[in-house]
Computed example of a mutant assay.
Amino acid sequence: MSSEAESRFHMVDVSQITSRPVQDMLRTDLRTDDGVRIEAVYEPSTASVTDPAAGTAVVVAHGFTGSADRPALRRAVAAFRDRASVVSFSFRGHGGSGGRSTVGDREVLDLSAAVRWARELGHARVVTVGFSMGGSVVLRHAAVERDAAARADAVAAVSAPARWYYRGTPSMRRVHWVVTRPLGRVVGRVGLGTRIHNRDWDPVPLSPVEAVPLIAPTPLLIVHGDRDPYFPVDHPRMLAAAAERAGAPAELWLERGMGHAENAADDELLGRLGNWLARP
Rank of each mutant, 00 (worst) to 15 (best):
F80C: 08
F80V: 15
F80E: 04
F80W: 14
F80S: 03
R81F: 05
R81W: 06
R81H: 08
R81Y: 02
R81K: 07
R81D: 02
R81P: 08
D82P: 00
D82E: 15
D82H: 13
D82R: 15
R83L: 14
R83H: 15
R83E: 14
A84S: 13
A84Y: 03
A84C: 06
S85G: 07
S85H: 06
V86A: 05
V86M: 03
V87R: 02
V87E: 03
V87K: 01
V87W: 00
S88Q: 07
S88H: 09
S88R: 12
S88L: 03
F89A: 08
F89I: 07
F89W: 06
S90R: 10
S90P: 13
S90K: 10
S90L: 12
S90G: 10
S90A: 12
F91L: 15
F91Y: 14
F91M: 14
F91T: 11
F91K: 02
F91G: 08
R92W: 09
R92C: 08
R92M: 10
R92D: 09
G93E: 01
G93I: 03
G93P: 03
H94T: 11
H94Q: 13
H94M: 11
G95N: 07
G96C: 02
G96A: 15
G96K: 13
G96M: 06
S97C: 11
S97I: 07
S97A: 11
S97P: 13
S97N: 10
G98C: 13
G98M: 13
G98D: 15
G98S: 12
G99R: 06
G99W: 05
G99F: 06
G99K: 06
G99A: 11
G99C: 10
G99N: 09
G99D: 08
R100A: 10
T102P: 00
V103G: 00
V103Y: 11
V103T: 10
V103R: 03
V103W: 05
G104P: 04
G104Y: 01
G104T: 02
G104R: 00
D105G: 15
D105P: 00
D105L: 00
D105N: 15
D105E: 10
D105S: 13
D105W: 05
R106N: 15
R106F: 03
R106C: 09
E107F: 06
E107M: 02
E107I: 04
E107C: 11
V108F: 09
V108P: 03
L109N: 08
L109C: 00
L109V: 01
L109Q: 13
L109P: 01
L109E: 07
D110A: 04
D110N: 12
D110M: 08
D110K: 04
L111C: 00
L111I: 04
S112T: 05
S112D: 12
S112K: 06
